[in-house]
């Protein structure tokens, strides 16, 4: 007797009011949530969207974060006593507002505003990814700024005293050291981002959580689809943490004694 028949048999018993043992009940619900009508493919499709959304938002967040952090650090590190760069001042002020507003409002609210007030586009998933990227950029910029500030001031002095310009000193000396220091917090931010993609379903984005809820709606049984989605998120995060750990170990090379 194959599994499909087993499912039909036990389901029939349940529907007609008969009693199932707990494991028969478990099997029916599991089958219904994942195997019936090849539903596992929907979870995979959702996972795909989740991963693509995470990757794109991450890329956007990192680029935006680096840009904002660089400008804000450069602004704060202008040599006292000399004339301040007015362009830098304006851009710095804009970025400061950006970080304050994004960090000061809930992500879901931002997504709704991007979708219904700003873009008014039916490319909901794309708009959602954009919103996630903008959100992530604010947090990443603060993490990077913290990392840059934490690098010993002597490093910048040593680089500049050798005649390297500000950007070269940043690029070869300060940023690599800061990057190593912030990797754990950055990884944390990425994990949060991965899970925040579930908010895309609010504005019609069809990612993992969307499919889990849709299947739950069809079955009138929420638990198994939710647990399924939870397992997938967990596995993704574990894989990601493992990769991050590998990268950290490689960067720690220079700490060997």
């Amino acid at each position: 007797m194959d599994l499909a028949q087993l499912y039909e048999t036990w389901k029939a018993i349940s529907v007609s009011g008969g009693d199932l043992t707990w494991w028969q009940d478990f099997f029916v619900k599991f089958y219904q949530a994942f195997i019936e009508a090849d539903r596992w493919q929907q979870y995979l499709e959702g996972t795909g969207t989740t991963l693509v959304a995470t990757a794109l938002a991450l890329l956007m967040g990192v680029i935006l974060g680096v840009l904002v952090a660089m400008v804000r650090t450069a602004h704060d590190q202008q040599r006292p006593g000399r004339r301040k760069n007015p362009v830098l001042g304006v851009v710095n002020a804009v970025f400061k507002v950006y970080v304050t507003v994004i960090r000061g409002t809930p992500m879901m609210l931002q997504l709704l505003i991007w979708a219904f007030v700003v873009f008014k586009s039916r490319q909901y998933t794309l708009v959602g990814i954009f919103g996630l990227g903008i959100n992530s950029g604010a947090y990443v910029s603060e993490i990077i700024r913290g990392g840059l500030m934490a690098v010993d001031g002597g490093q910048m002095e040593a680089g500049r005293s050798l005649g390297l310009n500000y950007l070269d000193t940043m690029r070869f000396i300060v940023v690599p050291q800061a990057f190593k220091a912030i990797l754990p917090s950055l990884g944390n931010e990425f994990i949060i981002l991965l899970k925040d993609t579930s908010l895309l379903s609010v504005i019609s984005g069809q990612e993992l959580m969307y499919f889990a809820q849709a299947i739950g709606t069809r079955n009138y049984a929420m638990m198994f689809p939710l647990f399924g989605a939870a397992c997938i998120y967990l596995v993704l995060v574990i894989i990601f943490s493992w990769l991050l750990g590998k990268l950290e170990r490689r960067l720690r090379q220079s700490d060997r004694r």
Partner: peptide, 26 residues
């Protein structure tokens, strides 16, 4: 003078610091 390219001036003046300030990432 603020107009002087300070980077090119510093290339001709070596500096050694109390705390070495070697670049630990290299």
């Amino acid at each position: 003078d603020p107009k002087v390219d300070i980077d090119s001036v510093r290339r001709k003046m070596g500096m050694v610091f109390q705390h070495f300030n070697l670049f630990p990432n290299m």
